[in-house]
Design a protein around this nucleic acid. Sequence first.
RNA 1: GCUGGUGUGGCGGAAUGGCAGACGCACAGGACUUAAAAUCCUGAGUUCGCAAGGACGUGUGGGUUCGACUCCCACCACCAGCACCA
Length: 809
Amino acid sequence: MDFIEIEKKWNEKWEKDNLYKFNNKNLEKKYYLLEMFSYPSGASLHLGHWWNFGLSDSFGRFKRLQGYNVFQPMGFDAFGLPAENYALRTGIHPEDSTRHNIQIMEKQLKELGATFNWEYELVTCNPDYYKWTQWLFVQLFKKGLAYQKEAPVNFCPTCNTIIANEQVVNGHCERCDSEIVHKNMRQWFFKITAYADELLSGLDKIDWPEKTKALQRNWIGKSVGAEVDFYTENGLKLTVFTSRADTLFGVSFLVIAPENPLTEKLITKENETAVKEYISQAAKKDEIERTSSTSPKTGVFTGSYVINPLTNEKVPVFVADYVISTYATGIVMGVGAHDERDFDFAKKYGLEIKRVINSKDAKERDLPFTEYGILCNSGEFDGLESLEAKTKIVEKLEKMGKGRFKTNYRLRDWSVARQRYWGCPIPIIYCPKCGTVPVPEKDLPVKLPHICDYKPEGEGPLGKCEEFMNTTCPVCGGKARREADTMDTFVDSSFYMLRYPESLHNDKEIFSRDYVNKMLPVDCYVGGVEHATGHLLYSRFISKFLRDLGVLDFDEPFQRLIHQGMILGSDGRKMSKRNGSKTADDYVKEFGSDALRLHMMFSLKYIEGGPWSDDGIKHMKAFMERVERICLKWSKLEENSNNYSQVEKDLDYSLNKSIKDIAENMEEFSFNVAVARLMELVNAMYKYDLVENKNVELCKKVVKDLIILMSPATPHFAEELWEQIGEQYSVHNQKYPACDESKIVLDEIEIAIQINSKIVTRLNIATDLSNEEILEVVKKDAKVAECLIDKTIVKEIVVPKRIVNLIVK
RNA sequence: GCUGGUGUGGCGGAAUGGCAGACGCACAGGACUUAAAAUCCUGAGUUCGCAAGGACGUGUGGGUUCGACUCCCACCACCAGCACCA
């Protein structure tokens, strides 16, 4: 079979027939399968694309065979920095290069032979798409969830734009690896923190990998504790956050972050020079140095004292850069005996170290430490467990008006504005009279102008385009200016799964409520784990917001999530142009796409990935040819023997067991095992082929079922073979074969016989025998009887169809 | 440091607490062939043994169990994410 030739032939026919058309009228058995859409880079599809799209497509084909009405749309995440940076290098306008790349990628994705529903294609840089990105912004703005504030932001000096926390990797820009600088800027944020608790609790009801849930929990970083107010002698309030209110008795100092605005007010004249010097030094340190847990904890005394609200003790206030100004209140209470950092700090500056413990425990344990002062919880709190003490203490502070229960999150609001050109314009108008006004929905989209001076200079390049910037205020009609920034591309992708079902069929609303609630949530979402704390978190947030807006009945967009492992270079490192000598295209030309796909399915675990090796591809081709030979031979057999003895039973067993196992393994994305089962079935066929008078009826059934079973993995090959054995087009419209359970129940099975848990022999035993009957047969066996001479059986264990274990003395 | 994951032949990798190593690669042998390739068949964890057979085997050490790759405890190694979060 000429694999290259047949691929061309069937790809053309399938496209012409629109074979995989999604039936949007009958949603009873719909299955929404989504692969994370990709960025249209101009390069040809690499092995990673095949791995991602090809294999999840096989899963989709499997669901189709099972009778599901599979919706598998495809689109492009088309805005973003790479096109723009490419444009700055080459002078080719981002719009032109992006459109061009999309065309190339569409063509290649079609060659992959996947069942994508192209008629629903979505491209985020099209005005009919980003109209809804802007609509979303306006809705968030109206609910107060899109807001501006002056805040420290991550600024990438190379990309010349702000980026979100989620896009900073080890203090560096995830795109260009430049070191991030921190600036205070007035910026747009989405208030994702309003949903922090829900984003946590929602994780419990979705079928996601534990790893990903853990990443999100970690990222949200919920910390339950309390705020406590300390006052200086002249009445200035310093509020600290603590998760250990029970150690309040042991506070011997307070530490405030250098950037905290209150710091200024705490500095006394005598300490002014030292503190100012310290602060300016701290400002010079880079992010890594500041936030590394191994950095030494240094600080300086401000000269001020505060009063501990519980003990009325006078406590000194220090400035130290190990306190993070953006987390909680930016002020921390120092308890030397209960926190390693506080301990280091207290030792260094000769501060008191007091261990807080209730007097009972102190007496019971002969406490070994000598360097700590021991302080028992006094009076009303003494004798309480730490948890109880925490509660009681905060309750008391609450009554005094000097403390309260408080939960903090590590999660920050999502910074969404980008000072770049190639993105979705923020639909906001600044009017000198009316202030910040959203663009009315009827005026959307605010189109991105096709400008040529898009060089980023730290401010939105759109600001240089007067025709764009000058507008009228939708409220008063006076002269006004537009927002010059564009949106983070993660806003574009935060709702695309909601828009897909009617991307080209509904331009009146983002989606019709009834329809979207029938189509979603996505039944299975496939993509890389690298989006765990970015896209996947943003999408969940936006869904929850749209639920609150009353347009969605659900709030978790992805019911099931599968991460593919990464496919690495043969050296085990990240795939790059250098270590991959051959491209996916080379393999397709040499062996065909089916062989490539089959090889990928079989040679590595999909969930785990691993180093790429092309060793097996030629064997996959050989395997297909092996299948072809036996199928063609059997399809031509004529004289039926009507035999149905053990050999036929064996073949029938293999067939039905394969049908069952392959379904189970496909469902779990264990493609390697599913392919192994296919091979076992083929081996069984070759074994039966040696039999002389064959049961041709059975042979033909096996051939048909085998081809159907192979069709998700090798779609072109299966279609061609289907035609060659004289079946009617198309194999992809067949039903997944039913497993005849009666055929996988064997009459007789080999059981291992153990004496004292050690195998002494194996016996064939009829499966319909009772445990007692089995024991009888076993004991009669010569070998077993020999072992039992002079022994007494103390226990008999029979595991039907598996093991007989006799415990003897 | 915290969180999650992984650890099985020469390699990729199988195994609802029940015969570890399915399936495949690489390897060896046989058949076909003048020969090779392709194909078909067979063998194979390691080790001792001519063999029958024995011993040892799923990162390490314990435990539970008639029985542990699988469950529990401790530890080691590697990978990933977070990391001075109070």
